[in-house]
């Protein structure tokens, strides 16, 4: 836990009590929660947001071989999808690329975050911070085209390697933000305390900084992983023959028509994303400084 996190309960307690009292009283005047129809709109909003996903999941269990018509419950499409050689190889490609990109991106993000937070202020440290986060708002298609052109210029063969390089690059900011948030809530007096107690720089990192940063590092890695697994546009540009990833494969199948297999793969990907996002949320929950 960070210093800030430790002191929060003391500060938050009186507030919480006051809030509890206020909400316990019945008030007549203006209340935010009582706009007419607000509840209905909330429901409409959620249906709008999640109906397509529900349809996707439900239809992945459809017995019919035409995806759009419901004829009965079945898991046969799951069996079929999992035994499909193309899907298997796309899955393996996806996992290889995502794992490699995650490890590389997280390591680089960790070094960058440490350099920015502990390297002392150097010329352009603020600019560096901005530059690391910038890819988050650059249109993905621009990054994709740029990456493609870059690979063409240096004459590299398209394949898993180009995918890993490209994915590492766009995963770095995602891995960086949670690590940086964690580091910011942690001033360097703990490292100084460790060094005062005979820990070398490396040992201070190993026994104090790293364990305290770990939740941020894991969160950053998970975010990178899921971003890599989901990526389509950049993958489309830089994947070579034989390095098709799952999103590329799904896109290829859809051009032929929406088959229940597509629903199955999409559902599985959705599930994986949910697991990772939940874990990410659990890890960063106690972290006051997380950038949302």
């Amino acid at each position: 836990m960070t210093d800030a996190a430790r002191t929060t309960p003391d500060i938050a307690l009186p507030d919480a009590k006051v809030a509890g009292k206020a909400s316990g009283q019945k008030r007549k005047g203006f209340e935010v929660g009582s706009f007419p129809g607000l509840k209905t709109w909330t429901w409409v909003f959620f249906i709008y947001l999640y109906a397509p996903i529900v349809v996707l999941v439900v239809y992945s269990f459809n017995a019919n071989n035409r995806a759009q018509k419901w004829t009965g419950f079945s898991t046969s499409w799951y069996a079929k999808a999992f035994s499909n050689d193309d899907i298997q190889s796309a899955t393996i490609n996806t996992l290889i690329v995502a794992s490699a990109a995650t490890v590389l991106a997280t390591a680089m993000a960790l070094l960058a975050a440490l350099a920015l937070a502990r390297g002392g202020r150097f010329k352009g440290s603020t600019a560096s911070l901005g530059l690391i986060s910038l890819p988050l708002i650059v249109p993905e298609i621009a990054t994709a085209v740029a990456t493609l052109s870059f690979f063409v210029v240096i004459g590299i063969q398209f394949g898993l390697l180009t995918l890993i390089i490209a994915h590492t690059v766009f995963c770095i900011p995602f891995a960086f933000l949670p690590i940086r948030a964690r580091l910011e809530g942690m001033d360097d007096t703990l490292e100084q305390a460790a060094m005062d107690l005979y820990a070398s720089r490396w040992k201070a990192f190993r026994y104090v900084t790293f364990p305290l940063l770990l939740p941020g590092i894991v969160a950053g890695a998970m975010l990178s992983f899921i971003i890599s697994v989901d990526d389509f546009i950049i993958s489309l540009m830089v994947a070579g023959a034989g390095s098709t990833t799952l999103p590329l494969y799904i896109y290829g199948m859809i051009r032929v028509g929406i088959s229940p297999e597509v629903n199955v793969i999409s559902t599985v990907m959705l599930l994986i994303s949910l697991v990772f996002i939940t874990a990410y949320w659990l890890l960063t929950r106690g972290d006051d400084h997380t950038v949302h």
Partner: peptide, 14 residues
């Protein structure tokens, strides 16, 4: 061979 008691203790929270 000197040790410090820091103003805000700086105990290792983990």
């Amino acid at each position: 061979p000197v040790n410090t008691v820091f103003q805000h203790y700086s105990l290792f929270p983990h």
